[in-house]
């Protein structure tokens, strides 16, 4: 990884206006307050922090779901922040997002096939319905589901299966960068482990880069190469996974790590 990073974020600010009327003074919430990081090709960087630290806003800003206030985000050397919606559209294929609640991100009135076909046509990845069907079948198998489920609707699936479908929706586009925002947080422990293994395997096999946003330090340790710890809109510590978990430097990182309840298996 000696070449230029796939994504370079520099001094990113995303502020929200929280108060003020015609006469009252404006107040701002600095959700993201000047953060910088790099993600190399094939690398998984985690953004970890507690609720309200701004980690989700980072992901939403990078996918243009929120406008940035200032700063730069170079994707393949191109600043994506000032792009117009139409200039950004072709890049949406390369930068994909996995959300926490897969049910909310699947259209309840479309079959899985319809949901997965749409992006294929939008991005010109399939020329015909037959071609799309074949791609969908392959992708469903990739995420551990039988191809025949494509005829079904989202409500027919369990939480874990829906997240697999959410992942299939992303993987079918062969993105270069995946932003996963609390992707496994809503799942039960035993299902969470399956989905985490799946995400890790897909990431390795495809060589895609990932920004993994999570509050769960155990999950973060499992999935990441590098970790950035966020607190009140800023990154307080960045480092290789080992370094962050075994020799944390910042007081906040230490506090986070010591607050996690642990299970000690006492060997009898």
């Amino acid at each position: 990884m000696t070449n230029t990073p796939l994504l370079q974020v520099r001094e990113l600010h995303t502020h929200f206006r929280t108060g003020g009327g015609i006469f009252a003074e404006k107040t701002w919430l600095r959700a993201v307050n000047g953060i910088s990081f790099d993600i190399h090709a094939g690398e998984v960087l985690s953004l970890v922090g507690e609720s309200g630290c701004g980690k989700s806003t980072v992901g939403r800003t990078l996918t243009q779901l929120e406008p940035s206030t200032s700063g730069a985000a170079l994707f393949n050397g191109q600043d994506i922040l000032p792009m117009t919606a139409s200039a950004f559209r072709p890049l949406r294929r390369d930068i994909q997002m996995i959300f926490q609640d897969p049910f909310a991100s699947l259209n309840p009135r479309l079959t899985i096939e319809q949901t997965l076909t749409e992006p294929l046509f939008i991005h010109g990845l399939a020329a015909s319905k037959t071609e799309a069907r074949a791609l969908i079948a392959d992708t469903l198998e990739l995420v551990g589901m039988a191809p025949k489920v494509m005829e079904r609707y989202p409500h027919e699936f369990s939480g874990g299966q829906r997240q697999r479908i959410g992942i299939a929706r992303v993987m079918i586009l062969k993105p270069k960068l995946v932003i996963a925002d609390e992707a496994v947080s809503a799942l039960d422990v035993s299902i969470q482990a399956q989905v985490l293994n799946l995400i890790k395997e897909l990431q390795r096999d495809s060589g895609m880069s990932m920004l993994f946003i999570s509050h769960d330090l155990g999950v973060v340790r499992h999935i990441s190469d590098r970790v950035a710890v966020m607190y009140q809109g800023q990154i307080v510590e960045t480092g290789d996974k080992r370094q962050i978990f075994e020799a944390p430097q910042h007081e906040y990182t230490k506090r986070l790590l010591s607050a996690i309840p642990r299970i000690t298996e006492r060997v009898a």
């Binding site: 369990s158 874990g160 299966q161 039960d188 422990v189 035993s190 299902i191 969470q192 482990a193 399956q194 985490l196 293994n197 890790k200 769960d216 330090l217 155990g218 999950v219 340790r221 499992h222 996974k241 080992r242 978990f245 790590l257 996690i260 642990r262 299970i263 298996e265």
Partner: peptide, 24 residues
């Protein structure tokens, strides 16, 4: 045992989690 093995821990690295297959 399966529940315990499914939990990614913060104190050491495991390559793959031993997930319980299937669903409830």
């Amino acid at each position: 045992r399966g529940l315990l093995n499914s939990i990614p821990v913060v104190d050491h690295d495991v390559e793959w989690l031993e997930a319980i297959p299937g669903r409830v």
